[in-house]
Nucleic acid binder design. Structure first.
Lengths: 112, 112
DNA sequence: GCAATACTTAGCCATATGGCTCAGTATTCG
DNA sequence: CGAATACTGAGCCATATGGCTAAGTATTGC
């Protein structure tokens, strides 16, 4: 369970940058070419491409090249790893809450 | 809506490190002192403290010092910012799906 | 075919990050 | 009081990150 560590790392790192989160948001509305995406950001194309590559290598988007145009598509499924991680943390929190409740109940039982 | 950017940044950055995620996991089971936490990790205390500070400054944990011991507690509410962000992305995806469905419906209507 | 377009590669640079040690400071315990 | 404990602060260091320019490659359109 959760030997995701390396994958989670990549996903969090990829999303820990405002430019890359903005790309994710844009691609949420549909596929776009690198050029179209890049036009929205105040940086040179090679700099922007690094972000695209980061998102791709960590599985958050997929890209394909047709002719001279590279098209980016969001990989929605990948975001599930975040849900999973959050769910796991909450499961841990629950367990603790349960133990606390058990403790309180035990106290009540043993203090007449 | 989502002028969270700076806050989200901090939260993602804070969680994009395996050590810090491990601390989060530990604290999910209950509060712990810095020393107790540190013992679980193969690094010097000052190095570890940086991680604690990072988690604290980005709101994921809270710490208090009593005597010479600093105790860390998870700030569960803070994780909601991740749910919010995920929900917003999915809302965007939904909108797109809706537009696509509309498009298909329109096609069917206009091609008898 | 030649110019414009759309990346791509290479390499530089400044700053940030995550680790370290060494030397404090503040509490607690015998 | 003096030693042990639990951080804390300062500063060093290597590597990673995010930006840049300049030059190259591959497609497309006239």
């Amino acid at each position: 369970m959760a030997q995701y560590s390396a994958e989670l790392d990549g996903v969090f790192v990829a999303l820990a940058d405002p430019t890359r989160r903005a790309v994710v948001r844009h691609l949420g509305r549909g596929p776009k070419s690198v050029g179209d995406l890049a036009r929205e950001f105040p940086m040179a194309l090679p700099s922007f491409m690094k972000h695209v590559r980061t998102l791709e290598t960590h599985g958050l988007i997929r890209t394909t090249k047709t002719g001279r145009v590279r098209t980016c598509v969001l990989n929605r499924e990948r975001f599930g790893i975040l849900d999973d991680w959050l769910a796991e943390q909450r499961r841990i929190w629950e367990e603790r809450t349960d133990r606390l409740e058990q403790f309180v109940t035990d106290q009540e039982d043993s203090t007449p």
